[in-house]
Design a protein around this nucleic acid. Structure first.
Length: 940
RNA sequence: CGCUUCGUAGCUCAGUGUGAAGAGCACUCGGCUGAUAACCGGGAGGUCAGUGGUUCGAAUCCACUCGAAGCGACCA
């Protein structure tokens, strides 16, 4: 047998089947860095429409986890898809550098400030620590294939940024939003300092639960407010019963709160009358050991507002107030209220104009002015207070009570709520809430429920407390009058003077500042504020410190993109700060992604052991697999990840990779400049596939514009599997391999494959960045060494239009193909044929379909990948066995093994095999292709 | 406990009022050996979380239940 294999044009490529990503991606990263890829993309897009995705700064502490990876990869995909659109989409990464968690880390090493280390040195250590963390995170972000200005990120601790944070505060003060006031904060008496929410953990604690009498000042007023049950209102002193688990807050009591909607009853017990919530009366009285009682009057809580009681052991009054937060879970339905010791109590206090009274000092002991309990530590005072209540006959009952109670996460000791002076950004003083609410409506929220979420938060939130009593933070650079507590009249000017110093020396400039330098003679009257700013203020003002200052960006940003928790975090703080400074939102669009969970939808936690580390994935499967997972997952909800999911992702990666590999292998000898066949000279099927490619490309443009990456992945993958693998590429193999290398028949399908490769490589570039860049190097033709990332959407595709074979005809042919395959499978199972070329088929169908099938004439057999294909009217066959297709046509496929000899070259079974003396094993077509001018094809 | 979001084949996702629920992957059976640790074909697989309702008709709208996640509350 002659060797005809060498006369075939078989696929050949240096593009490997397996990506070996874990090993080869780092090498590719190095080349990107060597050629300064990011900067050169910037240069290439100068003057184009700019699209600024402003990076939400991750906190500079700890290794990156899968959530970081999702966030950065999504950002990168958006930036790259905008670049693909031809836009100038810079990416300036950032880090959030100040704040508590870093202080904790440094404290672990150096010890507490003021004890083992001076504040100045401590801050230096914090700065150094943050820098190390940034380097560590940066290398991991880069490894994920995220392109950005990694050499010059923005850091909230850069001197310049620190100065601008201070200026931002100045601007908000100038605009009249900043106020000073008291606020109850979590206070650890062991730390001697306020705790952030994150430092609080809830643990079980046993407390004394006491029921206390609050005697009515004016009994008649009570009776008058209520409706009588019987003939009279009973007799004896009236007491409102309260229940509390924190006796030590009673010295600060100023009110008793009732639920306005609940029903309260006045109960006659022996010779006194008690006020209780009706729903809790029986249980409470049982607790007091009361057996006989009767209700003498009742009223809803709302009727009792503003009535007055005597404080149980002080000579002052306590007022009846109303609060929706009062519940009937436990107690008496009447809540002892100390505005200085609780959030609800504080809010109520503000509402009723009560003093925010706090008799407790920093050390957790009652202030010297506190009657009866001066100097006692609050928790130790509990017993004393119970004792006093007993003496005054105010105590009705006492028992042990187990409940969950806030504790300091470091000391594991119970903490207290305590009002302290703080700085606030007022929500309503100058209409900040209103501005923010109206700005929210101008922003595009993706998904749309993000809007409702942030609206409800802005609507309900209290004033923003921006002061912290910390070391590692941007200082609140204010001078306050010692007597009047007023800000210095030259505050604006002073802030700018301080900012200029911070610009040169960092925040330490403020802490080291001798106020005299700035204040001169005012020094005696003014106090230098020692508080630092809430870290959310740092990141919340990056629209000012970065977007408005950095020439690489602009304000407002086109996009903020973070996890859904940031509606309370960065989206929120940025909106408020921007509205307070500029009166508008800092972003045009906000995109939210969900959290990563495991295969069962459970959140990842170290203790459960279901954590997947992104860097581990890059080291095993490669960053492109992780990127593909991010892209393929619908980020609007929870994002599941597990080993199986990653394995499936790797499978679908291989499908895409191999499809492109085949395209490259088939165009190995193709030089577009020389061989590209003009559209109107290409075969119909080849023009058709280019048209399909264009259709998909147009869909993808829209899909990328809508940030629906998971839809893009589905479509691209489906295109590879179905349209290409299962149809087009399968059909053209014969022509690709067997026609003459330089024939129009072959160059035509190579041209189509070339167009597809050009287009598809760009499609996947935002997602499979490493792979797309690798493909680019193997693609035919001369191309830019900057690779795929500089490319814009491929313009070489064209619509399909044909007078003979219409688009609908191809669709019809494809439908029939499925029926042919079904029939061939039966023969195969019966052992009658192996490959489909062993068979000859006969298609009996309705006239409409016959017309479609015959548009491609004899070449139908190539489309069906059979040795012979015949079409005939259904009437000439057993019409009853026909199946009905989706379009209504009936079709019956008959198939038999071909009786003809098999051509050793093209494997078709043809009658003319052996008819040529020089090539006894070949069919006529192959003889023509080997020795003659080559066969002509028109359609397929 | 409250608010918000989500729950479609083993996996990732389409479908959001009307033809008997779709795709790819995985699985399974088979083919090819000229994409070969690749490729092609056939097949099986779902009471659309559950229950009840609105409707001629619901995976799709409403209510409740269960499960998950985020945020908040955990308080007297």
């Amino acid at each position: 047998m002659a060797d005809y294999k060498s006369t075939l044009n078989l696929p050949d490529t240096g593009f490997p089947m397996r990506g070996n990503l874990a090993q080869r991606e780092p090498e590719r990263l190095q080349t990107w860095q060597d050629k300064n890829l990011y900067q050169r993309i910037r240069d290439a897009r100068v003057g184009r429409t700019r699209y600024v995705l402003h990076d939400g700064p991750p906190y500079a502490n700890g290794d990156i986890h899968i959530g970081h990876a999702v966030n950065k990869i999504l950002k990168d995909m958006i930036v790259k898809s905008r670049t693909l659109n031809g836009e100038d989409a810079p990416y300036v990464p950032g880090w959030d550098c100040h704040g508590l968690p870093i202080e904790h880390q440094v404290e672990k090493k150096l010890g507490k400030v003021g004890v083992k280390v001076e504040a100045d040195e401590f801050r230096r250590a914090c700065r150094e620590f943050a820098l190390g963390q940034i380097d560590n995170q940066r290398k991991d972000f880069v490894r994920l294939g995220v392109l950005g200005d990694w050499d010059d990120p923005y850091l909230t601790m850069k001197f310049e940024t620190e100065a601008n944070i201070v200026r931002a505060l100045g601007k908000i003060i100038d605009n009249g939003h900043v106020t000073r006031g008291s606020k109850p904060v979590h206070w650890c008496t062991d730390c001697g300092s306020a705790l952030a929410e994150a430092e609080v953990e809830y643990r079980d604690k046993t407390s004394p639960a006491i029921d206390v009498r609050f005697p009515a000042v004016d009994e008649d007023a009570f009776v008058a407010a209520m409706s009588l049950e019987g003939e009279n209102a009973g007799e004896g002193p009236i007491s409102v019963m309260i229940w509390t688990t924190t006796p030590w807050t009673l010295p600060a009591n100023l009110a008793v709160a009732l639920n306005p909607a609940d029903e309260y009853v006045l109960v006659q017990v022996d010779d006194e009358r008690l006020l209780l919530a009706e729903a809790l009366a029986e249980e409470a009285l049982k607790r007091y050991g009361v057996e006989t009682y009767h209700v003498v009057a009742r009223a809803p809580g709302s009727a009792l507002e503003n009535l007055r009681m005597s404080h149980p052991f002080y000579d002052r009054e306590s007022v009846m107030v109303l609060g929706d937060y009062v519940t009937l879970d436990a107690g008496t339905g009447a809540v002892h209220t100390a505005p200085g010791h609780g959030q609800d109590d504080f809010d109520t206090g503000i509402k009723y104009g009560l003093e925010i009274y706090n008799p407790v000092g920093d050390d957790g002991c009652f202030l010297p002015s506190t009657e009866l309990f001066a100097g006692e530590h609050v928790f130790k005072a509990n017993d004393h207070i119970v004792e006093v209540l007993k003496q005054r006959n105010a105590l009705m009952h006492v028992e042990k009570f187990d409940h969950s109670y806030p504790h300091c996460w470091r000391h594991k000791t119970p903490i207290i709520f305590r009002a302290t002076p703080q700085w606030f950004i007022s929500m309503d003083k100058v209409g900040l809430r209103e501005t923010a609410m109206s700005e929210i409506r101008k922003v595009r929220w993706v998904p749309s429920w993000g809007q409702a979420r942030i609206e409800s938060m802005i609507e309900n939130r209290p004033d923003w407390c921006i002061s912290r009593q910390r070391y590692w933070g941007v200082p609140i650079t204010l001078f306050m009058h010692r007597e009047t507590q007023e800000l210095h009249p030259r505050t604006s000017e002073l802030i700018e003077a301080v900012a200029q110093r911070i610009e040169k020396e960092g925040i330490q400039a403020w802490f080291s500042l001798d106020p005299k330098e700035l204040l001169g003679d005012d020094i005696d009257d003014y106090l230098k504020v020692g508080d630092t700013l809430d870290v959310w203020f740092d990141s919340g003002t990056t629209h000012f410190s970065v977007l408005q200052r950095d020439p690489r960006t602009h304000f407002p940003a086109d996009m903020y993109l973070e996890g859904s928790d940031q509606h309370r975090g960065w989206f929120h703080s940025s909106l408020l700060a921007s509205c307070a400074m500029h009166g508008c939102a800092p972003y045009k669009q906000v995109l939210t992604h969900g959290f990563t969970v495991d295969a069962r939808g459970m959140k990842m936690s170290k203790s459960v052991g279901n954590v997947i580390a992104p860097i581990k994935v890059t080291k095993t499967l490669g960053a492109d697999i992780l990127r593909l997972w991010v892209a393929a997952t619908d980020y609007s909800g929870e994002m599941s990840i597990s080993d199986e999911i990653l394995k499936r992702t790797a499978d679908s990666y291989r499908r895409i990779r191999n499809t492109i590999r085949f395209l490259l292998a088939n165009t190995n000898d193709f030089e577009p400049a020389e061989h590209l066949v003009a559209a109107d000279e290409m075969l119909a099927l080849d023009r058709w596939i280019v048209g399909e490619t264009l259709k998909l490309q147009n869909e993808l443009k829209q899909i990328y514009d809508d940030y629906l990456f998971h839809i893009a992945v589905q479509k691209i993958h489906n295109f590879c599997s179905e349209t290409l693998g299962g149809y087009y590429l399968d059909v053209i193999k014969d022509r690709q391999y067997t026609t003459r290398a330089d024939s129009q028949a072959r160059r035509s399908c190579q041209s189509a494959q070339y167009h597809i490769t050009e287009a598809m490589t760009r499609w996947i570039a935002p997602i499979l960045s490493f792979t797309a860049d690798e493909i680019w190097e193997h693609m035919p033709g001369q191309r830019d060494e900057l690779g795929v990332f500089i490319a814009e959407w491929y313009e070489g595709l064209f619509d399909y239009a044909d007078d003979e074979v219409e688009s609908g005809d191809w669709a019809a042919i494809d439908q029939v193909r499925t029926e042919v395959n079904r029939r061939l499978e039966v023969l195969r199972q019966e052992g009658q044929i192996g490959g489909s070329l062993d068979a000859e088929v006969s298609i009996a169908t309705d006239q409409a379909l016959i017309d479609s099938l015959q548009t491609v004439g004899d070449e139908l057999r190539f489309v069906m990948i059979t040795s012979a294909t015949q079409v005939k009217p259904l009437a000439e066959s057993r019409a009853g066995d026909a199946v009905r297709l989706a379009d209504g046509n009936r079709v019956l496929v008959e198939a038999v093994p071909s009786e003809h000899a098999k051509c050793v070259r093209c494997w078709h079974h043809r009658a003319d095999v052996g008819s040529h003396a020089d090539h006894p094993e070949l069919c006529g077509r192959c003889v023509e292709n080997v020795d003659g001018l080559g066969e002509q094809r028109r359609y397929a």
